[in-house]
Nucleic acid binder design. Structure first.
Lengths: 212, 212, 212, 212
DNA sequence: TATGAATGAGGCTTCATTCAT
DNA sequence: TATGAATGAAGCCTCATTCAT
C-alpha cells in the first residue's frame, strides 16, 4: 500500500477501510480480541490514525454492529419479495435470516447482546407492538399472515408467534456460533430441523402436512 | 475491611469471598471481563492471595460455571420428579429452566457465550450424542420420551427435538435479558406462549389438542 | 535524563541504548537475570517502550548474542587471513579467540551457559557436523587442515580435534573469568601455555617440533 | 509422608531432606529455576519451614555447591588409589572426574561459576601454587609425576600442565552439560577423544605411543 | 517445630490513548 | 492528514519473604 495510494483515498474510504478491518478481526478472533493495534496493522496505518475517524474504540464497535444488522434486514426483505408458496417463503426467509446471521456471527451476536440504545433501536423486538415497528418482525408477521390466509389469528397472537420464531432463531444462531467444533453435517441437520419442522409448528401447523 | 476482620475469616470463607466477588463481576461485566486484579481489588486483598485458594483463573471460572449449571440442573431435576401428567411435567420443567436461568441471567449468558473449553464442557449441547452426555439435555430427552410413550421416535430425532427446545429457550432467555425495558406482563406472556404452545408443538403435538 | 534529551535521540539511538543497557545487565548479573523491567529502569523509560523497538525479550537476547559472536568470528577470521606459517596462524587464531572472549567475559560466559534455543543457535558446536555449520568451528577446521597439509585426517577426526580445542578454550576462559584474583602474570602464563603448547599438542604435534 | 513420620526426623535429617530436594530440582530444571516453593512442595512441607534451617535461598545454594564439590574430590581420590599403569591411572582419574561432574552437572557448574569466597575455596585452582594447596590439583600433579618418572619437569611446569587438564576438562563438562541434545554416541566420542588422546598429549606424549 | 496467610515485587506482554510534530 | 514516541494501566502468574500462631 504505497503512499500515493493512500493519498487518493478520501475520508470516507479510509473510514470504511477501518470498519472493514475491524469486522474482519471480529469475525476471526471475536469481539473481545479486537484491538486498535490490530486494526491499524491490518490497514497499514498507525494506530493513532483511527482517532481521526472515530471517537474511540467503542465508537467503532457500535458502528459495525448497527451496520451489519441492517444487512440482515435487507437480506430477509429481498427474500420476502421472491414469489412462490407462502410456506416455502417463510422457510426460505427464516433460513436466510439464520444463514446471514451466521455469516457474520460475531458481529451479529455483538449486536444482539448490546444494551446500548443505539443498537437496541435495531435489535429490540420483544415488546408489544414490535410486529409493526421492528422491520424484521414486520416482515415475519406479513409472511405468517400470508400462510394463515383467511383464518389469520389476531394481530396479537401473530406477533407473539413471530417473536417466538425470532427468539428461537437467535438461540440457534448463538449455539451454532459458540459451539465451533460441530461438524458441518450436524450443523445442517440442526438448521434443517429448525426451518423445516420447528418453524412450521410454531406457525401452527403439524409437520405432517408438509407444504400446503 | 480491617485486618482484624480478615483474621476471623477461615479458609473456606475467603474462598467463598473470592467466588462471590468473581460472580459479581461476571454478572456486571461479563465473563470475558473478569480479571484477577478486579477480584482482588473488590475483596481488598492483593492479587496473589488468589493463588492460595485457586490454581489459576480458569479454576475460578470453572468453579462458578459448574456451580451455576449444577443449580439449573438440580432445579429441573426436581421439576421432573414432581408427579403428574407428562406434558404438564415438560411444561413445568421448561418453565423452571427459563426462570432459573433468568434469575442469574448475566452469569448464565456469560457462560453460554463463552468459548473457553473450561466453560464449554458444561454448555455445549448441540453435538450429536449430547442427549446422553449433557445432563440437562438428558433430562429433557427423558421427559420427551415419557410424552411419546410407545410411539417414541428414534433417539436421534428425540435428541434433535431436545436441542431445538434448548436452543430456543436460550434465545428467549437472551432476549428477555437484553431487553430490560419490557413490562412484566409482556415478559410473562412471552414465557407462557413459549412454554404452553411452542414446547408442545416442538414435541410433535398441535397446540389445539391441549393436555392429553 | 531530561525530556529534552530524549527527544534528540532518534530511533536508532534508543535502540542502541536498549541494547547497551541489556548488555550491561547481562555483564553484571548474567543473561538469566536480564529482565525488561531492569532495562527500562536503567534507561529511564517505561517497560513498554521496549516493544517499539524489539519484538520481545528473546529478540533482544538474540541480537546481543549474535553481535557478540559476530565480533568473535570476525576477530578470528581476520586473524586467519594474516599471512605466515600455518602453525603460527593457529596459535594466533586461538589467542585471539581467548582474548576477545575475555574482553567481554561476562557476556560471553552468559551465552555459553544459556540453554535457550535463541542462544544455542550460536553457541552449540559439539554435535557431529558442527565443523561445517558452526562458523567459528569451520575457521578452526580450516586452520587445522592447513597445518596437516597432505596428511590431513578424515573430516571426522578434524572436527573432533577442533571441538577439543574449542571446549578447552572455553574452560580456560571460564576459569580466568571466575578467578578474578589471579595476577596478570599468571594469567599470561596460563594463556601462553595453552596456546603455545597445549593447542599444538591437541592438534597432533609435539611442542618440540616448533614451527614446521 | 505422615505426621508421625515427620516427628521422628531430627533436625539434621530434615536439613538433608531439604538439600536433597533442592539438588534434585537443580539437576532437573537448572539452578535458575530453583525455588523455595518447589523444594517445600517436594518434601511435603510448607515453604516457611525452610527458614528454620537455612538463612535464605542463597544459603541453600551455597551448601549444595560446596557439598557436591567435595564429592568429586573423594571420587578422584578413590580413583587415584587404584593400582595399575600410571598412564591408565591418569586416564581413569580424568574420566572419573568428567563423569562424576556430569552426573551432577548443574550443581557442578554452579560451583565452578560461583565467585563466592565460600565456594572459591574449593574451586579456585589456577593460581600459582594451586598444585600444592588445591586437593584435586594435587591428585592430578601426583599422577603426572608418576608418569614422568625420573624425567619429571619442574613443579612449575607440572602445575601448569595440571591446570591445563583441569580447565580443559571443565570446558568439556560445560559444553556437554549445555548442549543437551547431543546423542549419547557423540557424547562418548567426545569424552573418549578427550581422555585417550588429549590428556596424554597434554602430559607431553604423542598419542601414537599409546600406553608406555 | 511447623505452618498458613498474606504481601509486594517482579516476570512478560498487550492495550488504549495522548501528544508533539 | 498522519505518524511515531511514549506511557500507564492492566492482563496472568511466580517468587522470596515475613509474621502471627
Amino acid at each position: 500500500m504505497s503512499v500515493e495510494d493512500r493519498k487518493e483515498r478520501n475520508r470516507e474510504e479510509l473510514r470504511q477501510l477501518i470498519l472493514n478491518a475491524a469486522e474482519e478481526i471480529i469475525g476471526r478472533e471475536g469481539i473481545e480480541k479486537l484491538s486498535l493495534r490490530k486494526i491499524a496493522s491490518k490497514i497499514d496505518y498507525s494506530p493513532s490514525i483511527i482517532y481521526h475517524y472515530f471517537k474511540d474504540k467503542s465508537d467503532i464497535v457500535e458502528q459495525i454492529t448497527a451496520d451489519r444488522f441492517q444487512m440482515i434486514l435487507s437480506a430477509i426483505s429481498k427474500s420476502k419479495e421472491s414469489g412462490g408458496d407462502p410456506v416455502e417463503k417463510l422457510k426460505k426467509l427464516n433460513r436466510t435470516y439464520i444463514e446471514t446471521a451466521l455469516s457474520m456471527s460475531e458481529a451479529y451476536l455483538s449486536a444482539q447482546l448490546s444494551t446500548s440504545p443505539d443498537v437496541l433501536r435495531f435489535t429490540s423486538c420483544m415488546f408489544r407492538g414490535a410486529g409493526s415497528s421492528n422491520p424484521a418482525l414486520a416482515v415475519l408477521c406479513a409472511s405468517l399472515k400470508e400462510i394463515h390466509g383467511q383464518s389469520t389469528p389476531k394481530e396479537d397472537e401473530l406477533e407473539l408467534t413471530a417473536q417466538m420464531i425470532v427468539s428461537a432463531s437467535i438461540g440457534l444462531i448463538l449455539k451454532l456460533s459458540i459451539e465451533k467444533e460441530l461438524s458441518q453435517g450436524q450443523r445442517q441437520r440442526l438448521i434443517d430441523q429448525f426451518v423445516n419442522v420447528t418453524v412450521l409448528q410454531i406457525a401452527g401447523r403439524s409437520p405432517y402436512e408438509k407444504s400446503i
